[in-house]
Design a protein around this nucleic acid. Structure first.
Length: 1075
RNA sequence: GGGCCGAUAGCUCAGUCAGGUUGAGCGCUCGGCUGAUAACCGGGAGGUCCGCGGUUCAAAUCCGUGUCGGCCCA
């Protein structure tokens, strides 16, 4: 379909150049038109083609997780990505823009379980793993569609036809490949590790998937009787269910413990407790009396042995290899009892210390949190439910010192809210700690914005990162590609790790087509490998979903399936995500890249913040402060929403959402809209041809203000480019917005209005056309990455079918030396400051701008100001409607000014007594040429007829401005540069022009009321009651006739007639169209 | 509990690196302008620079400490 087929009515800005555009900026209508237009001309595809031969730039999209819709944070993230992709493209790059989606994992499984009403793994097994997995896939696909359409709705241009999906065979293969590389380097291991287990999901979950919430738990103080000596160790725990797995008690070597003989209910107990904890423990245990028998250090207690209270109930608990002994541990503090019950099977620190001590790892529970046969008496009970029985058993033995409950923060599964259990299980690990130095080195190869994120946060995290548990005992994920031999003894050399579909097909016993095979469970579960007479079976686990996205830098290139692009592009030039990804995707990619390829897979990182509410608080459904992106789009349009999001500092700081700011952005766009449509009627009327009449052609006719706006454009272009290079697109945007609003709209357009209104075809008018046209086109290019819709529409209207198919094919403008003129920029800045002060002075004198003033005097406080006003006097005359501008240089005096003084009566009184009043009057009335004591004394002495001694304390000098002048200070950002004086004295000549202008303005308003075309000639009839004023006005009949396009000044019989009152004078005006 | 980041006008932010009278835009308000007109221009009001302590002639800025918010870790 060609452009000419487009319905003109729907697309006012398209088709003919300088066509009619709607009066009002209507974002929704603009978006609708632009979306249709993009579709019709294949704008995205054409843009990509246009830059296809440029230098490649490899951007990698961090894949959003496919559950739920796009929120403000995702929207901010994608807006940033879109803006940077567009900008980098304009700078001459072929940018990779393949979007990605993270589609596996437990969160989706639990959503599907909810949907199907499942409660645990057994329900899934019953439903059938294959069915369940296919439900997960459809769920993820559904969510993906929703996200895609959300992203498209605010104009993000990415390769939507071809996103990478972590569930595709190519992508899963990329994960297998990376993992096999890591295995080859010997960085994969299987073994017991203490992990957080969700007993409902029956899988290990990552630490960051643990959410802490308050819950009530039992507290027990238990005494462990010592062997071969009198007394017991008192321990404290909130998890009685872990006591069956107790293996040692930890003390602090440096801490002091006391041997206490305490009595309650007539019974005597001998207890060991940390000195600082004694009081508290004994009061909890309701002991009536006690005495301290001995004080010893923790070090002296090392090696003491004790009897496990539940030894009979749990016979499998190993009483050998150094268990049930006192050891030192760093994690002990003088809290609770100062003696820490340690169960390596149920705690991370316990586990580590147990490993160091060479203790066996005893964990008598299964993945569902139920005691196994090793749990002895408690077999078959869920641990949390066994708490009570265990406590009772201990009490029966007389070993319960105290019990109660506590409300404390406890970890829960982020998906199903089940309290998590710490347990030691067999898991697969990437032993990332083996390459920690390499990780830290590789960090240096990346550049971060902001840099502190890398050097503080990220480095700290990497330094403390534990081995990466990559196995999950679940269904919806990438199956771990490890096959182990029957009766495997745990030796890694004996396992087979498959790295690709082809390798899989080659090595498995079954017939598999590498092109067709689905790598998901359960397909791969049934595949076996037989080599050298040994049969291998796949381990049943799937990968932690964090592993999926960690391979995105090559997965997005379909590597290893497609090697060519990997060779050309990898590693990524740029990634950008929010700061939560420091320990997420920034980290997982570093780990994967380093372990698999020895390199960090990205060069530059832009780390942005979170989208908070207007008070800086997290948006959350329960608080009800969530702002939906589609609501923002509805209220202010996609462009305004994007402008707001992109106006926020993208480096590490959180965003505060603000409807106010977004509304301001829409208003700014409205100003741009007005700026753009202002010249169109004139250009159309005059048949302006921007190709023939370009800047070069009108160069010699350019006026100062044209040169100025072009110079400003160069500066803005330079500043914006620098800001983008610095990853501060927000600063670039504010520079551009200030240019549009402040310079183009509020100054340039105001100044050139008269030139455009000129009926004659003048060189000056053409120069203004060419200038404004150039400026508008450049503004479109500079704004395009931020506001893709409105810029498209404006660009289309300016270029018609002579330009590119889309504004997004433009190159990023460069600063042009030829038009750069810093002196001129400073001049005008100063002139505008004078103008502002001048307007203020006029207002004080109540003289409207329509009435000319005879002269304006600028008393310069700085040479630079005098220079500027000297050079730009003509412009200033025009702006202030002054007949003459006079500059008083810094070393000159403005003679019309005089000084007087104000007396300080508290000093004058005592000094002059009776005559103080007289002296004061003389002071006030004195008019002297310079503010000096000598001059003042002389004037006062003359007035009083005798010598008067004055001192500095008595007076304060004040400037006396003559009555006909009105003064105002000239300032830029609060700094004073001088004073402007406006002479508002009226003369007949000034009154004559003033009244004439009053008439013109009213006739113009009446023309508008008749909705006349701007160039329609009229007949004008004036009837002014006051003869003198009528005479004054008649002196300017020619001016009036020209301004209002009055071809005849005659009686109007039945035209548009109106009574006016001007400065108290009645006048009647009538007009009539001559067409 | 620990690490990192932030707090300046009613709102959004600059100024903090390198100490010297806190500044802009928006909003509010008063006035002006009028063929860009639901636009535009000028004036005005509006501040405990989060609190406390220290260094210094001088602190929004440097140091210490606390409070609140955000992210991460436990």
């Amino acid at each position: 379909m060609s452009r000419s087929d487009i319905d003109e009515e729907d697309r006012p800005s398209e088709g003919a150049r300088f066509g009619e555009v709607p009066d009002q900026y209507d974002p929704e209508a603009v978006e609708k038109r632009v979306f249709e237009y993009w579709e019709e001309v294949d704008a995205y595809e054409k843009t990509k083609e246009a830059f296809a031969d440029e230098e490649p730039f490899f951007f990698v999209d961090g894949p959003p997780y496919t559950s739920g819709a796009a929120h403000m944070g995702t929207t901010w993230n994608k807006s940033l990505k879109d803006a940077y992709i567009r900008h980098i493209r304009m700078r001459g790059h072929d940018v990779t823009d393949r979007p990605g989606y993270d589609m596996h994992g437990l969160p989706i499984e639990t959503k599907v379980e909810e949907r199907l009403g499942f409660e645990n793994k057994k329900d899934i097994e019953e439903f059938g793993m294959e069915n369940f997995i296919s439900e997960c896939k459809s769920f993820a696909d559904e969510q993906l569609e929703g996200l895609q359409s959300d992203f498209k709705s605010f104009g993000v241009w990415m390769d939507w036809e071809n996103p990478y999906k972590t569930v595709s065979p190519e992508y899963m293969e990329a994960a297998w490949w990376g993992f096999s590389q890591i295995a080859e380097r010997g960085l994969v291991d299987q073994g017991k590790r203490s992990i957080s287990q969700c007993p409902r999901c029956e899988t290990a979950i990552a630490n960051n998937e643990v959410e802490y919430e308050d819950r009530e738990d039992p507290t027990v103080y238990v005494s462990f009787p010592l062997r071969e000596r009198e007394g017991s160790l008192v321990i404290y725990t909130t998890t009685p269910w872990t006591i069956p797995a107790n293996e040692f008690v930890a003390v602090g070597e440096e801490l002091t413990y006391q041997k206490i003989r305490a009595t309650r209910d007539g019974e005597e107990d001998v207890l060991y407790i940390a000195a600082e904890c004694v009081e508290n423990v004994l009061s909890k245990g309701r002991y009536e009396d006690y005495e301290i028998e001995e004080e010893i250090s923790g070090a002296e207690m090392l090696g003491w042995e004790y009897d496990l209270p539940l030894a009979e109930e749990v016979p499998a608990n190993p009483d050998r290899d150094g268990t049930h002994t006192v050891y030192h541990a760093d994690y002990v503090e003088a809290e609770d009892t100062g003696l820490v019950h340690s169960a390596p099977g149920h705690g991370e620190v316990d586990f580590e210390r147990g490993q160091e001590l060479g203790l066996p790892i005893f964990c008598p529970i299964g993945g569902d949190g139920v005691y196994t046969s090793e749990g002895g008496k408690y077999e078959g009970q869920f641990v949390k439910e066994a708490d009570e029985e265990i406590t009772a058993d201990i009490e029966e033995k007389g070993l319960l010192v105290a019990s109660g409950t506590i409300t404390h923060s406890y970890g829960h599964c982020w998906r199903c809210d089940t309290p998590i259990l710490q347990m030691a299980t067999d898991q697969w690990f990437i032993t990332i700690t083996d390459v920690k130095e390499e990780l830290l080195d590789n960090i240096e190869d990346s550049e971060w914005h902001p840099q502190w994120a890398r050097d503080n946060r990220f480095r700290d995290f990497v330094e403390n990162a534990p081995d990466w548990n990559v196995s999950r005992q679940r269904y919806w994920g990438i199956p771990i590609p490890i096959w182990v031999p029957e009766g495997w003894c745990g030796e890694m050399d004996d396992v087979i790790v498959i790295g690709s579909r082809e390798e899989l097909a080659k090595r498995v016993d079954e017939d598999v087509d590498p092109e067709e095979v689905d790598l998901h469970r359960p397909t791969v579960d049934d595949l076996t490998i037989t080599e050298d007479g040994t049969t291998y079976e796949r381990v049943p686990d799937v990968f932690d979903v964090w592993l999926d996205s960690s391979v995105a830098s090559w997965g997005t290139l379909d590597y290893p399936g497609d090697e060519e692009r990997f060779e050309e592009l990898w590693p990524a030039d740029l990634i950008m995500e929010a700061h939560d990804q420091t320990r997420g995707w920034f980290w997982s990619q570093l780990g994967m890249g380093t372990a698999a390829l020895g390199e960090i897979p990205y060069d530059e990182v832009l780390m942005h913040g979170f989208a908070n509410d207007s008070e800086g608080k997290k948006m959350s459904k329960s608080v009800g402060n969530v702002v939906q992106p589609h609501e923002a789009i509805q209220r202010h349009g996609s462009d305004a929403m994007r402008l707001f999001l992109l106006s926020v500092n993208p480096q590490g700081e959180d965003m505060r959402f603000s409807w106010d700011e977004m509304a301001t952005m829409e208003r700014n766009l409205n100003i741009l809209w007005n700026v753009f449509r202002f010249p169109l009627p004139y250009m159309r009327m005059d048949g302006f041809d921007p190709e023939g009449t370009d800047l070069e052609a009108v160069d010699s006719d350019l006026e100062l203000v044209d040169e100025w706006i072009l110079a400003r454009l160069q500066t803005v272009t330079r500043e914006m480019t620098a800001a983008w290079d610095d990853f501060r697109q927000d600063q670039a945007l504010s520079a551009l917005m200030e240019f549009v609003v402040e310079d183009v709209s509020r100054f340039y357009i105001q100044v050139v209005r008269e030139r455009m209104w000129d009926e004659e075809d003048s060189p000056s008018k053409n120069a203004a056309y060419a200038t404004l046209y150039h400026v508008l086109k450049q503004v479109c290019a500079l704004l395009a990455p931020y506001a893709p819709f409105i810029t498209e529409e404006i660009y289309g209207a300016l270029t018609g079918d002579r330009g590119h198919d889309t504004v997004h094919m433009l190159e990023w403008p460069e600063q042009e030396e030829y038009w750069t003129d810093e002196q001129l920029e400073t001049d005008i800045e100063l002139v505008r400051a004078v103008e502002e002060a001048g307007s203020n002075a006029r207002q004080q004198a109540e003289r409207k701008l329509r009435w000319p003033v005879s002269r304006v005097v600028v008393a310069a406080g700085e040479d630079r100001l005098a220079e500027a006003v000297g050079r730009q006097g003509a412009l200033l005359e025009d702006r202030l409607n002054a007949r003459e501008i006079h500059v008083v240089a810094t070393d000159e005096r403005f003679e019309e000014l005089a000084y007087s003084a104000r007396a300080d009566m508290s000093v004058l009184g005592p000094q002059f007594g009776d005559r103080a009043g007289e002296v004061m009057s003389a002071l006030n009335e004195a008019r002297i040429e310079e503010p000096s004591l000598d001059a003042l004394s002389a004037a006062v002495s003359t007035a009083l007829g005798e010598d008067v001694e004055l001192t500095e304390e008595m007076v304060e000098f004040v400037e006396e401005t003559p009555e006909e002048l009105s003064g105002s200070r000239i300032t830029i950002e609060g700094n004073g540069l001088g004073v402007v004086y406006v002479d508002t004295e009226l003369t007949e000549d000034i009154e004559s022009e003033g009244y004439a202008r009053e008439v013109i303005r009213r006739v113009q308003e009446m023309r508008k009321e008749l909705d006349l075309p701007i160039d329609a000639p009229i007949r004008l009839d004036l009837d002014i009651a006051d003869d003198q004023v009528a005479g004054l006005v008649s002196e300017h009949e020619d001016l009036i006739a020209e301004e209002v396009r009055a071809a005849e000044l005659e009686t109007v019989e039945d035209g548009h007639r109106k009574e006016w009152e001007v400065e108290g004078i009645e006048m009647e005006i009538a007009i009539e169209s001559l067409e």
